[in-house]
Amino acid sequence: MRRPKNKKFFPQFFALLLILLVLVSVYLFCDVSAQTLNYNIPRRLGVLAAIAVVALSVGVSTVVFQTVTENYILTPGIMGLDNLYIFIQGLTIYLLGNGTFNMMASTSHFVFTLIVMMCASVGIFLFMFKLNKGDIYFVVLSGLIFGMAFGGLSSFMQVLMDPSEFSILEGRMFASFNRINMDLLGIAALVSTAVSVWMFCDIRSLNAIVLGRRQAIALGVEYKRVVLKSLIVVALLTSASTALVGPVTFLGILVVSIARHIFPTFRHDILIGGSILTGLCALVFGMLATERVMQFSVPLGVIINFVGGLYFIYLMLKVKRV
């Protein structure tokens, strides 16, 4: 029974792959002249690699997060996990100060932030679970508030900061699709791939968690362990993507909702694969549009947040309950 079901989504996958292939080759080879070849192709390959890491991180983290929180509206981005990342990064620069910080390469700073981020987000989640055992809506709501608080705190900290420290922070923090943080590409790719593979070991348990906490436990899923692991994975993946291109609040909801339409299934291997592919297509297309058609006049992040935000409002109106 499982075998033919796998084939059911083959046409969709094939179509998406085809679209992706066309988009990628257009992006790579369109208007390259012999003179600019040596500059353009490596630069574009770098951008594509970064986009791949972002698509992987956002696809996996959003689907996993929606499964363990049993809702299809909220995402790590909307919960403000990316704000937490930026807050931690700013905090370390602020506390350690200029001298220590200059010695820290951006890679080690990233790894350090990653560890703090993991502990902080798991700590916050555990704290909220303890406060209100098992009520995921409470966790989600508090997460929204925490996210806003972190956003506010990081802007407050930036005001307090020494101007020279702030200039360093600015360089590392305000990454965007037009200013991808290429220094971190290697480490971010490594982290996001490793973490995604780690999550894939529990893919069957995630499928069962779709039935809800009670039914998952009745089927023998180690619910607490899988949920905790999922939250760690979500924190790490969000960090990786935020480090590369900065916060893109509504990318996750946009990509995963489209993927859910194309692949109407509960199976996480298909859903996650589909989300990653959809994310790749959307991002490469967006890159093409902003770089070539609009000549960098509008940043891609703004477009994604605009479209994604509109879609989010539509979802809220349609579902009417969280």
Partner: peptide, 30 residues
Amino acid sequence: LAKHLTILGQSPNSAARITVEELVSFGRFP
């Protein structure tokens, strides 16, 4: 334990796209 004991909660439901056969197949999960 899931091979020895199971529970069905009050009005179970799921928002995910699951067919009846897939749901019943979940019974074989453990």
